[in-house]
Design a protein around this nucleic acid. Structure first.
Length: 573
RNA sequence: UGGGGAAUAGUGUAACGGUAGCACUAAUGACUCUGACUCAUUCAGUCUAGGUUCGAAUCCUAGUUCCCCAGCCA
């Protein structure tokens, strides 16, 4: 008899005899489902501290937790772990909610705050004191550190460790009432000062913090520490699988100890996985904050930042971030994923979904000498060859057009297929043109290219079946919109920004060319009508999106990611 | 010289004692009104040394390397 579970986790032997490969977290969940460990129930959560903006590493956690909930017909909570008022702000809770929602994390009506549990946590702390499992310590922070011992030497018990239950109760209540200054006393769990796991050497449960909390205001002046609070939060919410990152592995014995001391509380299982690292970027909140405050970037949502808001502004879609998170997998190996994988996911998604337009970033004028002066026309263009439902549009054409400066070469090498004197190429959706003449200024810069066109090739096909080696994009001189285009590259110049000589920091790895602003780009007119946030492809260049800095008078576009460019690679050789 | 984790192509991730697979990257070619996309091909891997076994990435022993822990941060 096979054990089936009633969720769609792929663990139903009747339906799927070859259980598809699940990551180790999902395997645990599937096994629990099969064994009925939690009554078949699955409940996950994403528990951010509102002290910064979310980044791609958080996205991995959100996709994991909400994904598991979805796949196993479970529930997913968003819970703010707001136990430290000095670092937390409402601005962050707002941005986090927006980011989680944008990524597709659906917490439905289950939005929670650790701060809503403060009274319950306090009551449980009193329970621990009553059981002789916790005590108020008067040691200074410095003394506590000294008493804790080191990695190789055991700690020593605090002289206050054996206070009576009555005295502890009294002191703890007075801590709560605000009778003592910050740092004067703490409540500690009484576990084992000689434990090899430093987390078990009488960890601090409460500290005194006379600070205004973003939600509870001045109601509390003692605040629970992570280790004490987190398991309780999970327990209150009946979380089954409390998924966190590897650095909390050492904390699991403590997570379990606290829950074991309390009577009749729900005891979730903590599971740790490796956090995400990416090449050419940094991921720690501290460093991201530093980039923002020291103005190495233009805010949390700078398109070069690995923040969710930065990637959104850059033009990444939630779908591509989700597909990336799926592809990187979940394991316990501390790895660094190549940012090229992220970029692949972005291109793959945008290729399917974005409309094509023509834009010239570095314009040079082409005059079609045999095209009648004063004449113009509209040509048909396909919006998205990958998606017929995207339809068609008209693009204005005339005697003078702009093409990309790098699409012309006077002395072209053999492998250069684009415009060069005497060669015929196709203007996308327009005509075949042949370069006849190059006009330069006094310093030798090309200012104009003179071509002839073949009227019979209107639309881009030759009736006689002759071929051209390349197709280039263009924009009408008479009918276009000007725009600013921000070209982004990796924020850091090295795969590992931390890999710097003695005395330097990751800031020394910043790529000085991570942002190049193009002020004189010309776009086909349709592009001028798009609202902020719209993701498009500039043909032959890359994916771009309309930046919120755009005004009705002047559009701003961000480069999301360039198209793969084998010609550029060829040139490097 | 404490404790806790982890090691599979360049990168990431599967294989749960039975043919080391997939994706990205790179290279080559085909196709092409985007030098894109797509398709095909190729390069390339079990940390080391022993052992158990008909058979080991997987089990055992020893070692090596990397990560985490001495916040009143999370």
């Amino acid at each position: 008899m096979s054990e089936n579970c009633n969720c769609n986790c792929g663990n139903n032997d009747n339906v799927n005899p070859n259980r598809e490969s699940l990551d180790f977290v999902r395997q645990i969940v599937a096994d629990d489902c099969a064994s009925g460990k939690w009554g078949g129930r699955v409940a996950t959560r994403f528990p951010p501290e509102p002290n910064g903006y979310l980044h791609i590493g958080h996205a991995k956690s959100i996709v994991l937790n909400s994904g598991i909930a979805q796949e196993f017909a479970g529930s997913f909570n968003l819970r703010f772990d707001d136990t430290n008022p000095v670092k937390e702000e409402d601005e962050y809770v707002q941005s986090i909610m927006a980011d989680v929602r944008w990524l597709g994390g659906d917490w439905q009506d289950r939005l929670f705050f650790a701060s809503d549990y403060f009274q319950q946590m306090y009551d449980w702390a009193v329970e621990l004191i009553r059981k002789g499992k916790a005590y108020v310590d008067d040691l200074t922070p410095e003394e506590i550190r000294q008493y804790r011992g080191t990695l190789t030497e055991p700690g020593r018990p605090s002289p206050y460790r054996d206070r009576s239950v009555e005295e502890n109760l009294d002191l703890f209540e007075r801590m709560k009432k605000g009778e003592f200054a910050n740092g004067a006393r703490v409540l500690r769990a009484k576990i084992d000062m000689a434990s090899n796991n430093l987390n078990l050497r009488d960890p601090i449960m409460y500290r005194i913090l006379h600070a205004t909390h973003h939600r509870t205001g001045d109601k509390w002046c003692i605040y629970p520490m992570y280790d004490w609070a987190h398991g309780l939060e999970d327990s209150i919410e009946k979380i089954t699988h409390s998924i966190c990152t590897l650095e909390f592995e050492n904390h699991r014995p403590l997570y379990d100890w606290f829950l074991d001391q309390l009577d009749g509380v729900f005891h979730p299982q903590q599971i740790e996985f490796a956090r995400l690292n990416l090449t050419y970027t940094v991921m720690s909140k501290r460093k991201l904050l530093q980039l923002v405050t020291e103005k190495h970037v233009n805010g949390w949502d700078d398109p070069r930042m690995p923040t969710v808001s930065g990637m959104r502004r850059r033009g990444y879609s939630p779908e591509c971030i989700r597909s990336f998170c799926k592809k990187v997998g979940v394991a316990k190996f501390n790895s660094t994923v190549d940012v090229a994988l992220l970029e692949h996911c972005v291109r793959a998604e945008l290729n399917k979904t974005s409309s094509r337009y023509m834009a010239v970033l570095d314009p040079v004028k082409v005059v079609i000498t045999n095209y009648p002066e004063g004449q113009s026309e509209y040509l048909d263009a396909v919006n998205n060859p990958e998606d017929a439902s995207a339809g068609n549009r008209k693009v204005p054409f005339g005697r003078e057009i702009y093409i990309e400066r790098e699409d012309f070469m006077e002395d072209a090498p053999k492998k250069f297929f684009r415009l060069t004197p005497g060669r015929e190429v196709r203007l996308r959706y327009a005509y075949f043109i042949t370069c006849q003449e190059v006009i330069k200024d006094a310093t030798g810069n090309i200012v104009e290219i003179r071509c002839t066109y073949d009227p019979a090739t209107r639309g881009g096909d030759s009736p006689d079946g002759r071929k051209v080696k390349s197709t280039i994009h263009w924009v009408s001189v008479a009918d276009n919109v000007k725009a600013e285009v921000r070209m982004y590259d990796h924020l850091f110049a090295k795969p590992d920004p931390e890999d710097v000589p003695e005395g330097q920091t990751f800031l020394n790895s910043i790529n000085p060319e991570s942002l190049k602003v193009i002020n004189n780009a010309v776009l086909e007119p349709e592009l001028g009508k798009l609202p902020a946030g719209t993701r498009v492809q500039f043909e032959r260049l890359g994916y771009f999106c309309v930046d919120p800095d755009s005004t009705p008078a002047r559009k701003v576009f961000n480069l999301t990611i360039n198209l793969r460019d084998t010609w550029a690679k060829e040139q490097v050789k």
